[in-house]
C-alpha cells in the first residue's frame, strides 16, 4: 500500500482519565485507504528531547469527514507532548504503515484489548462490522477510569469488560474473564492487542483450542518502513520486521510463544 507523509490538523482533543489522550485529526489531503491494525509514525512537534517519530495505531477512520483518531497512553516525553496539543495544532504523520488485520473466513471472532492496547481495536471492530461480521469485544483494564468509549465499541459488537479491581465488569485479569472459562470456547479467531505479557497470557490460555490467535506487537521502531531493521521479532522463519511484516502476527509464527 502506498505510504504518505501528510499534515493533519487537531480538530478535537479529549483527555479521558489522567493518562490517556484521544485526538481527532483532519487530513490536509484526501485520506488514502487505511486498514485496521495499521499505524502511523508521528513527528512530535517542538520537542527537542524527542528525536525519532513515534509509532501510534490508527484508532478509527471517518472517511466521510476525512478524519482519523488516535488513542494514546501517556508514558514518556513524546506521548506527553501529544497530550499537550491544542485544537488547530498541526501534526505530521507518515502512514499508513504495516499490514493490519486480515479479515477471517469465520464470523466467530473475539477482539481482546488490554490497557492502551485497545487502540487498534475500535477501527478493527468498525471495519469488521462494515463487512458484516459480528465480533464480540472484551476489554480489560486496571480500573473503570481506564476504560473509555464503551458506547463506540457497542455500535459494532457485544462488549464485555473486566477490571483488576472489579470497578467495571467482571473482576480480574483479561484471561480470567468468563468468556475464556466455558468448556466450549466458541471463537475461531482472536485478535488481541495490549501489553506483550497480556498477549502471551491470552495465547497460552487458548493453546489446545481450535482457535487462531492474532496479536499486534509494539516493538520500538526507528524508520517504520522496513529500512533500519530495528524492530525485529523472532519468528519461526527468522527475524522479521514488525513495522512492515506486522505489526499483526499469527502467534503460530512467533518463536517462543
Amino acid at each position: 500500500m502506498k505510504k504518505f507523509i501528510h499534515d493533519f490538523k487537531v480538530i478535537k482533543k479529549w483527555l479521558p482519565g489522567s493518562n490517556h489522550v484521544i485526538l481527532h485529526l483532519l487530513c490536509s489531503e484526501p485520506l488514502p485507504p487505511i486498514k485496521a491494525g495499521q499505524f502511523a509514525e508521528i513527528l512530535i512537534p517542538d520537542e527537542p528531547e524527542v528525536f525519532l517519530r513515534r509509532p501510534i495505531s490508527i484508532h478509527d477512520v471517518d472517511t466521510k469527514n476525512n478524519t482519523i483518531s488516535l488513542f494514546v497512553k501517556i508514558v514518556g516525553k513524546g506521548t506527553y507532548k501529544l497530550s499537550e496539543l491544542r485544537v488547530d495544532d498541526t501534526l505530521n504523520l507518515l502512514y499508513p504503515l504495516g499490514q493490519g488485520f486480515e479479515f477471517p473466513e469465520h464470523d466467530k471472532i473475539l477482539l481482546v484489548g488490554g490497557g492502551c492496547g485497545v487502540a487498534p481495536l475500535l477501527f478493527l471492530a468498525h471495519s469488521l462490522s462494515q463487512h458484516n461480521y459480528h465480533p464480540d469485544i472484551l476489554i480489560g483494564s486496571r480500573n473503570a477510569d481506564e476504560i473509555h468509549e464503551t458506547g463506540e465499541y457497542e455500535k459494532y459488537g457485544n462488549l464485555y469488560l473486566i477490571t483488576e479491581d472489579g470497578s467495571l465488569g467482571e473482576k480480574g485479569l483479561v484471561t480470567h474473564h468468563s468468556i475464556f472459562k466455558t468448556d466450549e470456547f466458541k471463537y475461531k479467531i482472536v485478535y488481541a492487542c495490549g501489553p506483550e505479557g497480556m498477549l502471551k497470557a491470552v495465547n497460552q490460555k487458548l493453546k489446545g483450542f481450535d482457535t487462531e490467535v492474532f496479536v499486534s506487537l509494539e516493538n520500538t521502531m526507528a524508520c517504520g518502513i522496513g529500512a533500519c531493521l530495528s524492530c525485529v521479532v523472532k519468528t519461526t522463519t527468522g527475524n522479521r520486521c514488525v513495522c512492515t511484516e506486522g505489526p499483526v502476527f499469527n502467534t503460530k509464527e512467533l518463536a517462543g510463544w
Binding site: P48, E49, V50, F51, L52, N219, T220, M221, A222, C228, L229, S230, C231, V232, V233, K234, N239
Partner: peptide
C-alpha cells in the same frame, strides 16, 4: 543479526545494534 532490542533513542540521535 543481534537479538531485539537493537535500537535506543538518544539526545539528537540513536544507537543501533542491528
Amino acid at each position: 543479526g543481534n537479538p531485539y532490542p537493537r535500537m535506543a533513542e538518544t539526545p539528537h540521535g540513536m544507537l543501533n545494534a542491528i
